[in-house]
Design a protein around this nucleic acid. Structure first.
Lengths: 149, 149
DNA sequence: CCAAAGTAGTCAACCAAGTTGTCTAAGCCT
DNA sequence: AGGCTTAGACAACTTGGTTGACTACTTTGG
């Protein structure tokens, strides 16, 4: 019997490949999964580069590189932290929020197709099951988002 | 709502991290996920380096590097292909098969813990659902095993 | 049957995306 | 005040892949 992680990896890749293909037809900058996850994170909470690194599961230096790219491309900008003069908040620009909307549409297309293929209830069970497992293993503090190969 | 791939990535990482931690306590060579997946692949079918690369979703050169490491460490050996003088079959040594057994035990421990946490039936649904989706998207030809970050 | 096209494996150069280590300036804590 | 911690930046390095080129062998089609 195949280990579950293999199924997870293959499904992750299958979905990611499709997403990437559809995205490429639109012809934006070469955004990687990490960039998208940063957008999603920034939509929820104000965050510094260090926060982002922690969320992705990489060092702050690696996170800084990603933030720099997003800045260069105009998806985010930095604004001074109100109380801490060392820190900067990274915030989404309009371009960033637009991208996020587009990506959300693509993802929901893909999930609808998945629901159609395996059943809506099955998909819901997968969602809830994985979320429950994650809560079980780590408490509130989430694991890194980046799959370690 | 969080996209499903994020859940997949986080669960993959959570399980992989635990596996790695437990494995490290035993103190073997620094085997990465790819190595394990190669063992599992070789157990099923005779394969060349090119086959392995395809299975992992990397180039044959990258696969060759992995096979070389496994060879150096004594987990696999190469034997001449019966009909094609260019090719070599990569086969598991006893050490390789032993590792695979050990890994299988660790994985089944982890899956049992998962089943306990989220319910055996939920885990079964996840298994079947993901497998069904993969069959739906790709036919028989599997996607790469390696998650693309 | 032979020539052209394709394939397995290897070598080498390169690249992307992380890492560790170091430093400065700023904050925090008794 | 003084000592520890932290955000961010810079640099050197590592890892794990890539592309490209080449040899030896195999397959295919006229």
């Amino acid at each position: 019997m195949e280990p579950v992680p293999m199924l997870l990896a293959m499904t992750y890749r299958a979905m990611g490949d499709q997403f990437h293909d559809r995205l490429r037809q639109i012809g934006l900058e070469p955004l990687r999964p990490a960039h998208g996850y940063v957008f999603r994170f920034l939509k929820e909470k104000r965050a510094t580069t260090v926060d982002i690194g922690q969320h992705l599961g990489v060092t702050k230096q690696a996170a800084a590189k990603i933030v720099n790219e997003l800045d260069d491309w105009g998806y985010v900008l930095r604004e001074p932290h109100p109380t801490d003069k060392r820190a900067q908040y990274v915030t989404l620009t309009t371009k960033g929020r637009d991208y996020l909307k587009l990506a959300d549409n693509l993802w929901s297309d893909l999930e609808n197709e998945m629901a159609e293929a395996i059943g809506e209830d099955t998909l819901a069970t997968i969602r809830q099951g994985l979320a429950a497992y994650l809560r079980h293993v780590h408490g509130e503090d989430q694991p890194g988002l980046r799959p370690v190969w």
